[in-house]
Simulated assay, not measured.
Amino acid sequence: MNTPQTGILAVVPDHARYISFQLSDRTALEVTLQAIAAQADGERVVVGIGLSVVEALGQHIPGLLAGPRIDGSLVDIPCQPIALWLWLRGSSRGELLHVERHWVELVAPAFSRQHSIEAFKYDTGRDLTGYEDGTENAEGEEAVAVASVMAPAADALVGSSYVAVQQWLHDFKTFDAMTDAEQDNTVGRHRISNEEFDDAPESAHVKRTEQEAPTPEAHVLRRSMPWSAGNRAGLVFTAFGHSLEAYEVLLTRMSGAHDGIIDGLFGFTKPVNGAYVWCPGMRHGQLDLRALGL
């Protein structure tokens, strides 16, 4: 049976690069995807396929969308569809520079690079605001069930994952002007102890994204990492799931489309791009692209 790409379930690395590509040459698509499947190990290089590639191949991945589009959202949620997504994971910036060079050249026959975002682990896995990220993540077999498609789905889909990726840009001047209590109320947790408090306002992030609150429950596996470029910085939000439904439920609540209450995070940070992709599972040590007709 297929298994998820191992980098999805592993802890976030010390350094990473998120690279997005657009489809540039349909005639070279099949051979390029086969080269990707042969070289990607799913651990140091996690691969995601966008809707435009699926459609170019005349195939269908159930539930795959190009990116977030939340009806009734009270905030701007950008959608910038991508064709190919690579999450490069490593231990040093220099290492990943050379890995990125290799992969950009490998996929060049069919794909052109759109964005490259340099990310890193901060402290023990915190956002640059100092708050711990992914505190409600499932672990072990529960994490596998949350993050990947399980049987009895079609064999070629088992072990695959749906991924929501958003790059958030923080306004640190606004955040720093808030008192400690205001910051904690915005998140709904104490920054130092990481404990949630029951009397947090309904706009607190933990209230907006409480995975047990919706019916059915909306669980995702977060693997987000901070990013920086010059004096700009924020968080690359990355959520894996066995579908996109849970993430869309949470984003609907964050955006105010559910009940008119906007997540307090929007007071000091905002998404500047966002897309959905599908990560094939691994079969016999390679990416399983049978669902794409390959």
Rank of each mutant, 00 (worst) to 15 (best):
I262V: 15
L74N: 08
D71L: 15
F197I: 06
A66W: 04
G130L: 09
V277H: 07
R69M: 10
V31E: 14
S148Y: 01
G285Q: 09
V107W: 04
E30Y: 04
T209I: 12
A35G: 08
T6Y: 13
G58D: 04
N273R: 13
D41Y: 03
V31D: 15
V220Q: 01
S255E: 05
D184P: 01
L244F: 00
P62T: 01
A200R: 12
Q5F: 03
G7H: 01
S112A: 15
T135G: 11
G281W: 00
A145V: 05
A16P: 04
S148N: 10
I262A: 12
A38M: 08
K121P: 07
S116D: 07
P201M: 11
M282T: 03
V31Y: 07
M178C: 08
G48Q: 00
L292N: 02
V104E: 14
L251G: 07
R189K: 12
A257E: 08
M225A: 07
V144A: 08
L96E: 03
G188K: 06
H170N: 11
D198Y: 11
V187Q: 04
Q39M: 10
I262T: 13
W85V: 03
P68T: 06
Q22N: 14
L287W: 02
S203A: 13
A275S: 10
A40I: 00
V144I: 14
G293L: 03
R290W: 04
K173N: 14
A110E: 04
L74P: 09
L86D: 02
H284S: 15
D288C: 10
T32P: 02
M1R: 10
G90I: 03
A246V: 00
R44C: 09
S91T: 14
S224R: 02
E212D: 11
